[in-house]
Computed example of a mutant assay.
Amino acid sequence: MTVRIAQFVHASNDVVDEAFLRDFPEVEAAKANSLESLADALDGAEILHVYNSAFKPAFARLVRERGRALKWIQFTTVGIEIGLNAGLPEGVWVTNSGDVSQPVLASHAMALMLGVMRGFRRYEPLRAQRVWARQAMSLHMIAPERARMVILGMGRIGQDIARKAKAFDMEVICVTRAPAPAVPEIDRVVPREKVGEVLPTADVVMVAMPLDSGTEGFLSAERIARMKETAVLVNISRGKVVDEAALARALAEGRISGAGLDAFAQEPLSATSPLWDLPNVLMTPHVGGNGGRESWRRMSELVRDNTRRYLSGAPLKHVVRTPDGTLQGFGNP
């Protein structure tokens, strides 16, 4: 019996190659890059590989209508909230990428933090003009050593950021629903309702929360206003966790020092957004989880492992929704 996999993935996460098919002779793959080709790929498919942002309403409707044989959806992303909102098919197992992107995403978060604290964004226009500006640069440089980092969220990404922050001798506080630190590198935890007590003391605020009904707008205009002028904000999670308009105003008015952003409320970011032109903002286009060949290798290992489990009837790894619609293991504390 042949098991069909329908794929709608970015090339960087396409792990069903010739070697995969040799190792799984009972599997066939149908790759799609449009709604039209997806409709054909879903015909008889038991498995769907897909990424979160693909699940727009029309896409979700097509999957529900044509994916009648689906039993398992493997997301190549950690987030599945767009799929949940658009409507995933009933009666299927849903898994996400788990910790595949965790190490590189945490590294990206630290790179954004360091880039802002060390003034990289501010120097780029001067470099283009061949201006040395050594004295002018020093006015905007902050040392990470012994700085206080407040991480919003204590899931896998938050924990890995905490470990990396300790390499810079930073104090680490996590704002979380959990009662105790998840890893020894976290110095203390603070409940979400008391976030206002630690924001005024933070040198770095790191957003690592998932987007859900309890976190949308969590870093509100009021909470941003509590941050000190020398503070840096980094968001590698979801744009809507932060009041983006309030953040842009605070940055433009110098009420916080700078921001490193890899996630935005609207993606792609609107050409009219003030964030494009601010000299104290370092931005990347939601690529923090991309790690080249190493990320591909980690994704391949996960998909191969889960495929073996599916074919043998063993429990899948990184289940985020069960066939009865129960969400589990999804999101950060």
Rank of each mutant, 00 (worst) to 15 (best):
M113N: 06
R177A: 10
A41T: 00
K71N: 04
M113S: 12
G331T: 05
M113A: 15
G313H: 04
P25E: 10
H10T: 08
P89K: 12
P210H: 14
A30C: 06
D277M: 02
V287I: 15
G239Y: 02
F55K: 08
R4T: 12
R122W: 09
R163Q: 13
Q328I: 13
D160I: 00
L84G: 08
L233I: 12
F8H: 13
S138M: 15
R177Q: 11
V190A: 03
G258S: 08
I224V: 10
A86I: 11
S213E: 14
E46F: 04
F20E: 04
A29C: 12
I256C: 06
N290W: 09
E253L: 12
L327Q: 10
A136M: 10
L311I: 06
V94F: 02
D17V: 00
I142S: 07
G254Y: 11
T307Q: 03
A32I: 00
R255K: 15
D324A: 13
A202H: 03
F55V: 13
H140G: 05
R304N: 02
H108E: 07
E65A: 14
V207L: 09
E216T: 15
V190W: 02
H10Q: 12
D187P: 08
S12E: 14
I73G: 00
E171V: 15
I161N: 00
Q266I: 13
L211Q: 08
L311E: 07
A41V: 00
V195S: 00
G258C: 06
I47H: 05
S101P: 07
V50F: 07
R68P: 00
E46P: 03
A6I: 00
E229I: 02
A202L: 09
R156N: 11
R298D: 05
A225V: 06
A60R: 01
I151T: 03
A133V: 08
A225M: 09
A182C: 04
L251W: 04
I236L: 11
M299E: 09
L21D: 10
L327A: 09
L261Y: 01
D14F: 05
D203L: 07
K317Q: 13
E294H: 08
